[in-house]
Nucleic acid binder design. Sequence first.
DNA 1: ACCCGGGTTGACTGACGAGTCAATCCGAGG
DNA 2: CCTCGGATTGACTCGTCAGTCAACCCGGGT
Lengths: 199, 199
Amino acid sequence: MATARPAVDKRRMILDAAVRVFARQGFHTCRVSDIADEAGVAYGLVYHYFQSKDEVLDTLFLERWDVMLDAIREVDARPDPARDKLYAIASFIVDSYRHDPDLMKVIIVEVTRAANSFGAVHLGKIAEGYAQLSGIVEQAQRSGEFRDTVSPEFAAMAFYGAIEQVLTGWIFGTLEQGDDAYERAKEYVVETICGGLNS
Amino acid sequence: MATARPAVDKRRMILDAAVRVFARQGFHTCRVSDIADEAGVAYGLVYHYFQSKDEVLDTLFLERWDVMLDAIREVDARPDPARDKLYAIASFIVDSYRHDPDLMKVIIVEVTRAANSFGAVHLGKIAEGYAQLSGIVEQAQRSGEFRDTVSPEFAAMAFYGAIEQVLTGWIFGTLEQGDDAYERAKEYVVETICGGLNS
DNA sequence: ACCCGGGTTGACTGACGAGTCAATCCGAGG
DNA sequence: CCTCGGATTGACTCGTCAGTCAACCCGGGT
């Protein structure tokens, strides 16, 4: 059989270790040997599975971002009101953080915001997410559920920006965490963006 | 006279050059010699005025962030409705970007989001901004201008998150720019956060 | 028993870049 | 004119680390 010989998938172990190391030390300040040590494999093995340190980060990002894009597409396909769709998306993102805070930290801190130093691949992937969100808002504006005072693209940015800021607050310990806080955050994001602060 | 001997302030030139270099190449990927070259001074002079490469970035951030905190405080002291205050703050931030996009890029991309690798000084400074914003919202909730369905801290994050996301869009060229776009962005941020998307 | 080839190892190299430092410049004061 | 001290210079040091590579391990096929 040509299937994976080893019982444990070393490639996977390296990726998982990289998440922990990147989250702890940051991409630029960690050494490849830190990743290998954390994964319990030899230094060279990292280069057996990946072309470079960058490719490890790329892989982590693309892997997860694609899952998120799929989730958004799935939500968008539902026949629900836009508000519910946005809640479902906020829910997905918050739960992603709950499930693997380190990974989300790496994606937000090292990739999303540092998109300049990386290839345009990432910019494109990120833009895909915005496009999807814009679509939801646009449709809601047409159906009359949302006002059309602001452009859909802009609404998408405000929505995503609010979520990302909350995650950032959790990541840096500025914002209270815990299951309650997570659930509240989902509500608050949607309530703020859809309902507004005005009384 | 013990005053600055040189007609031109080399320290200032180094800081200005650093903004351009950091914006172009990123903090981690640029060399100190790049900064010196860009400033047209010798390598060693950077170390005459600054302890380290990090200190150059620190200085840039603190310099500008303090200006912003002052501006926010000034706005907060006015007797205007919260919505106007938020508009004034959005205005200040957007105009900061218009005036010096490179500097804002550096602050957002290299500092605000990378606060982990830097000292808690930055976290504290950033938190000060949030506190100020929260205060504005809280007061508006008490006066009845805003609903109290979401916590002030959260509203502050949503507001700032929306603005930062817009700046990020400009920085990475995802979002249309120009004087019109800047003015529209100010309106949109406030309209979204205060008015909400619902019709 | 013997090979074959992919998985695995870790010492080594080569480049790179932050920070140092001794020397030089130059204006001010005496 | 001379000295003093801060400003300025840039060659050099020294540690670090991404990436290479030759060798080794080991199961499966013959």
